[in-house]
Design a protein around this nucleic acid. Structure first.
Lengths: 221, 221
DNA sequence: ACTCTCTATTTTGAATGCAAAAATGATCCA
DNA sequence: TGGATCATTTTTGCATTCAAAATAGAGAGT
């Protein structure tokens, strides 16, 4: 089995929330499940630790990284910065074809919004933002963005999507698309920052689904 | 020996240019030198591959990542974005003490500049930028910045530092410090972008020291 | 009954061993 | 002499094994 595959599969397990944040990662169990030995598993865990998804405790095993409110704030801040950068770069380089694709994703997303399909809406939302990042034509940026968004998604926060918020988000997305079509880098950068700031406010206000560690609470004296 | 230590030591070896970009990483040799077995070494290599410093070729070993001009451009773009973000955040959060430290680093750097000490000048330069990033108080940002700058430094480009360029860089640093003291986030962000753009132009114009792979050239048919 | 300590078990971290793939080079043929 | 093919050696990737550390548990002492 390829090393990369193991990393990918464990990453998925973590992103799916199958192992909740803070919970211990059962080495032996995962080995059996993936039908590999501990060597490649441990290699994968080290890589994921470098990515920030796993926390290694010397001689005490590895845990799914636990994200504090501060961590989430930090991640959103960086995400915001990366998207703003991507927006500026994308305006310089994006092709008409790529714009059309993003426009299509936007249209699909609006449709899902009208139908009230939250899951599909999120998917479309993600497609738009990833489209912009890809259009920046900078693989380094793409990689960092993927890493940061993965960690954010990991938190599996539940945003109470009020109609007002949906409407705001859709409006902002329209503005984003508009700026892209006008190739207005600075304008897009500002919109993206505002957009993400709104999203961050939602998230932090709601708090994110603090999935319990699958362990007994600490005995406090 | 701690796993982290191995990663750090190999990273240093790579950053020192001891293994030139594109060159094969001699597994056996490194094992002997670090007095470890292949297991922790390979773990470290996988981590460094995730960081982008090492390139893994299935069944063909690992090589020190080779950076193309495009890679360098991409890295500089992202570095620029991260610094701009850091500057904005730093203006909101930086303490007088931190400003004083950066001011001290700046003063020291100017002194080295006057003395023509390039090495120390670079060191001071780095201290200033790292100071700003740290002042942003965002560990996620700090981590990504460290990773990106490490890869850039890895390239060991040789910039022909003309007096004009030095003067420009020093002037820009003064402006940076000034904006920080005024807590002018937007202004600082712009200065940092311009500053890095200048630096990037130098680098790309000069080309970077394309250290030869320590291998015979490919036999071309 | 509670806690402390000492031992046994489990788990982690690293070394070694083994099979498969690639690189090397030696031989054979045109 | 040049090139191709096959055997040998080396290297890679993973499994297994082993020592050390941590955890859990039993027993003794207060």
């Amino acid at each position: 089995m390829l090393h990369e595959e193991v990393v990918g599969r464990i990453r998925d397990i973590l992103l799916d929330g199958e192992i909740p944040p803070g919970a211990r990662i059962p080495e032996r169990e995962l080995c059996e499940r993936l039908e590999i030995s501990r060597t490649p598993l441990r290699e994968a865990l080290k890589v994921l630790a470098a990515e920030g998804l796993v926390q290694l405790l010397p001689h005490r095993g590895s845990r799914a990284a636990k994200l504090t409110d501060k961590d989430m704030r930090d991640l959103f801040e960086v995400c915001q910065g990366l998207e703003a950068l991507a927006g500026e770069l994308a305006c310089e380089r994006i092709t008409d074809h790529e714009i059309a694709e993003i426009a299509a994703a936007h249209a699909a997303m609006v449709q899902h919004y009208r139908e009230g399909d939250l899951i599909q809406y999120y998917r479309g939302n993600r497609a738009i933002h990833e489209g912009i990042v890809n259009a920046a034509g900078n693989p380094v940026l793409t990689g960092l963005y993927a890493s940061v968004t993965a960690r954010i998604r990991r938190a599996r926060y539940v945003t109470p999507m009020t109609p007002q918020r949906w409407a705001l988000a859709v409006t902002e997305h329209e503005a984003i698309l508009n700026a892209l079509q006008r190739r207005d880098g600075v304008g897009l950068s500002h919109i993206l920052r505002a957009h993400l700031r709104h999203k961050r406010e939602e998230v932090l206000q709601a708090g994110f689904a603090e999935t319990e560690t699958s362990e007994p609470a600490l005995k406090i004296a």
